[in-house]
Design a protein around this nucleic acid. Structure first.
Lengths: 211, 211
DNA sequence: GGGCCTTCATGACGCCCCGTCACGATCACA
DNA sequence: TGTGATCGTGACGGGGCGTCATGAAGGCCC
């Protein structure tokens, strides 16, 4: 190649150095591979080497990024929570009372998990159980976000003070459980499920939708 | 020893043969050992050999009874559910309406888990997480028992038909979650927790106890 | 009581996965 | 271009897992 009329590309590249880039790329590659492997083999059967093999990296490299299979799983859960948080925040921001916040948040959650389900639990062996996500930082943040959302809208409603920790735990538990059950039904009806969950929390059994 | 005046014990022993007895004894010994080991080392760290060592049996013997550590854990959970079932049945039998059944069942459950907690989670390493119990036959039976109990008392109340699967799932989820949180508080207040859970399910947030 | 068959406890063995580490390549910076 | 730091690499030792050949002991019939 002639170097006449060759202008070296000025080094205005704002991206971080190559080291930094491959680092985040590897981290992401491992995460993606783990998602696939967990989905195909099931969490229990999958090994660290199954995951790292799919990335083309060496086995030792895995341990430069995560300590164990469990930690990758936590990272996946954490990632999910991180991506869900803005959606939750959106509901919190536009909510004017307890009911609107609750309904919005639950529906947002159900739509979120339904989408997630489609995108990566593609063909999991039947009966395989995925362990419940442990308490990751982002999941704790989601909990706090819900809690603070509740505090805000209950304040708006001039509602009497209640045990916010219990209330938050209970609502999340209901959403989680009904969400799971919802995904087992065909067709997946996020709105029906959200209506059920919201009405239960808002008014108890007597307020539930009739069949 | 003289055999004068020796009356051989007539063989009226109704107990099963020795083989059968050692079999159930071993099975139970392994279960007890597992409870202890899980409690002391934590579920993740515990190995099959930790468990079997404590029984004095050989490592191979373990596999004559259980396929893996997970299966022992499931057996423990199953055992818990089996012992809880009669308590639940008692509430179901004496209940005359939805409210009395719900309150009775939740309080029975909270007292049950509080007792269990004392008896075998004696000194678990802090922060250690015990995996959520998988779906065992007895746990499914508990689910059905709750479901049928609901069906019965809702019938008594002449209440409109609702989605019983969702309702049962949601109630169990609330009980589980509030139960967990309850155990983290000192002093453990089963009645307060039961009151909260029952009121939430019966009348929604607006019916919750005020602080 | 003796002989025979069945059942099951035993612990050594091979397998596989795990986590580490010394080495070498590549990048950042001077 | 030289130098130090960073990180990918894969071979290696360690250890838990599940199996299996063996032998001991219970059950059973004569």
């Amino acid at each position: 190649m002639s170097n006449i009329a060759y202008f070296p590309k000025p080094h205005v590249d704002q991206r971080p150095g190559k080291r930094e880039r491959t680092k985040t790329a590897n981290r992401q590659a491992i995460l993606d591979a783990a998602r696939e492997v967990f989905g195909e083999l099931g969490y229990d059967v999958a090994t660290v080497r199954d995951i790292i093999r799919r990335t083309g990296l060496a086995s030792g490299t895995f341990y430069n990024y995560y300590k164990s299979k469990e930690e990758v799983f936590d990272a996946l859960a954490d990632d999910g929570a991180r991506r869900f948080r803005p959606l939750l925040r959106e509901q919190s921001d536009k909510a004017t009372d307890f009911e609107s916040f609750l309904r919005g948040a639950i529906l947002a959650y159900f739509n979120f998990v339904a989408t997630e389900q489609e995108s990566w639990r593609i063909n999991r062996p039947a009966g395989e159980q995925i362990p419940h996500a442990r308490a990751t930082p982002e999941m704790a943040a989601v909990f706090d976000e819900v809690r603070e959302g509740f505090a805000k809208v209950l304040e708006m409603d001039h509602a009497p003070k209640v045990d916010l920790d219990y209330l938050t735990s209970a609502c999340i538990a209901v959403a989680r459980e009904i969400g799971d059950k919802m995904l087992d039904r065909r067709p997946v009806d996020t709105e029906g499920a959200a209506d059920f969950a919201a009405k239960l929390i808002l008014g108890g059994v007597s307020a539930l939708p009739r069949l």
